[in-house]
Design a protein around this nucleic acid. Structure first.
Lengths: 109, 109
DNA sequence: ATTATTACTACGACAGATATAGTACGTCTG
DNA sequence: CAGACGTACTATATCTGTCGTAGTAATAAT
């Protein structure tokens, strides 16, 4: 199992990555994360929705209601220009973070 | 700056890595981390000592007092066999974690 | 005597992740 | 047509690791 403490700093980044491709909503994002990682990582619903709130508050995403006439109304999220900037920064940060952690990792048998 | 939320899941691993080489104490470990990362990452004292407590409680490290006659008595830490096992697991986990996060990282310009 | 350096300890606050539970709406099946 | 199932959330409370702040303790240097 993957400890979520590591992903912690990147759950926002994961969501933004998916929103870069197209606007989406909670359930779909959750499913995509599962698929893309072959079920090795799943973001809990509460984690996901609290991330949406955080991202909104920071101006990294906007939301609007879907127009579906059947089923419950979805809240769609859209990445903002600020969100794109933030995403890029996190990607750069990741390179550094990886280097740092790997200084303390040994391949042992 | 490196967000400590990412390192979060690996601060224990970092400490164990250093204890694999030789027994050590808080201040020295703190300095080594700074050196090894060219000051790009520093573990706060409180974070460090709370990690020692956690590692002790889990049986991953043992402690004993130094015999220095000058200066304050140091508490030395020693990694246990369980600590070594745990360290190895975390190293394997890291490989997976890295793969997962990198699925969501793009090199953009 | 005071300051610097080393080596901690205590305490409280905060943020992100998560468990648990519940709401709301629609489709499908017997 | 009732009840299960799937989708799409919301609310609340708790836990854990990190960190700010502050204080203690011992010795060496000035």
């Amino acid at each position: 199992m993957i400890s979520s403490d590591v992903i912690r700093g990147y759950s926002d980044t994961i969501i933004l990555y998916l929103l870069l491709e197209n606007d989406s909503y909670g359930y779909e994002i959750s499913k995509k994360i599962k698929e893309m990682t072959d079920e090795k990582f799943t973001m809990k619903e509460t984690t996901l929705y609290s991330a949406f709130n955080r991202l909104s508050k920071n101006g990294y995403i906007d939301s609007y209601h879907g127009t579906e006439t059947q089923g419950k109304r979805r809240t769609y999220y859209k990445i903002t220009p600020e969100g794109i900037t933030y995403y890029k920064e996190k990607c750069k940060e990741w390179i550094l973070t990886k280097e740092i952690i790997e200084k303390f990792i040994k391949e042992m048998n």
